[in-house]
């Protein structure tokens, strides 16, 4: 699955500037994560039209990068996330960051993972019976 990362400044309204552009372009945000840092932030999102979103943002002079991430189905029960992380740890794969989808109706959340080795992670997760969502 594609993720878009946007460099945003640390001031009031900088996130809204991004979401306003996406709204105007009718891009739907499916997952979003942002963390604080002293001078700037990286806003990471999974959207329904990543290429179009990147284009719209770049035209307004945002720095945008599209990266490949893994999105996995979770079981709605204790230990589900632990299972995913344990599989990765055993395979020696680094997890750089993780966040979740913003809605799933009555289902358990999809987790977005950025890891050191996408292909290997895909194999070991599948091997452990964890469902990966591609689109």
């Amino acid at each position: 699955m594609k993720q878009i990362s946007v460099l945003v400044e640390n001031h009031v309204g900088s996130l809204a500037a991004v979401t306003a552009l996406l709204k105007e372009a009718h891009v739907n945000i499916k997952a979003i994560a942002s963390f604080d840092s002293p001078s700037y932030g990286i806003l990471r999102m999974v959207v329904d039209a990543p290429e179009q979103a990147a284009l719209v943002l770049q035209e307004s002079h945002f720095a945008v990068k599209i990266t490949d991430v893994l999105t996995v189905e979770m079981e709605d029960q204790p230990g589900a996330l632990d299972h995913v992380f344990a599989v990765m740890a055993e395979a020696g794969i680094d997890i750089y960051y993780v966040y979740s989808f913003v809605y799933r109706l009555d289902k358990a959340p999809l987790m977005v993972l950025n890891v050191s080795d996408n292909e290997k992670a895909r194999q070991v997760l599948k091997g452990a019976g964890i469902q990966i969502v591609e689109e």
């Binding site: 460099l7 963390f35 990286i42 720095a63 945008v64 990068k65």
Partner: peptide, 18 residues
């Protein structure tokens, strides 16, 4: 100004550059 977008997904790289 960043020369391209290649560093945008990494706090570590951006902070190192700054």
């Amino acid at each position: 100004e960043l020369a391209d977008n290649s560093l945008v997904d990494s706090y570590g790289e951006l902070e190192k550059l700054s």
